[in-house]
Amino acid sequence: MKSLEELKRIKEQTLKEMDLRQAKERGKVVVAMGTCGIAAGAKDALIAIIDELEKADIHDVKVVQSGCMGLCDKEPTVEVSMKDQPAVMYGDVNDVNARRIVREHVQGGNVVADLVVKRENI
């Protein structure tokens, strides 16, 4: 990195990649993986999500991790953003709930109402 110009290029490039509307992926699942999330079982949630996507033969949904979202009481938390839909954050995502989220939200297109902790406005 030698200049601000280069920095700007990376920023634009990454923004493009992160923007679902332009991305090749259909959606993104973010699992909060701070100490606290992991202690509450975020790894199990991550494994369950990947496994469930695999089972359903879904390959155009990205699964990524983030730091913590701060709501320890509802950990593990997972955020699902599907193309052209507001992002939804879920709490209490254990193995079973993670699978529900994949089946009902990612696959079925229905928000899993009883697990929602936050919805984003677009």
């Binding site: 990454t14 991790q65 730091g67």
Partner: peptide, 16 residues
């Protein structure tokens, strides 16, 4: 502002 919003392992997302 970035905690939970970006992948902490991705410097690109931080730059974004």
């Amino acid at each position: 502002r970035n905690c939970g919003a970006i992948d902490p392992l991705s410097i690109e997302e931080y730059i974004a």
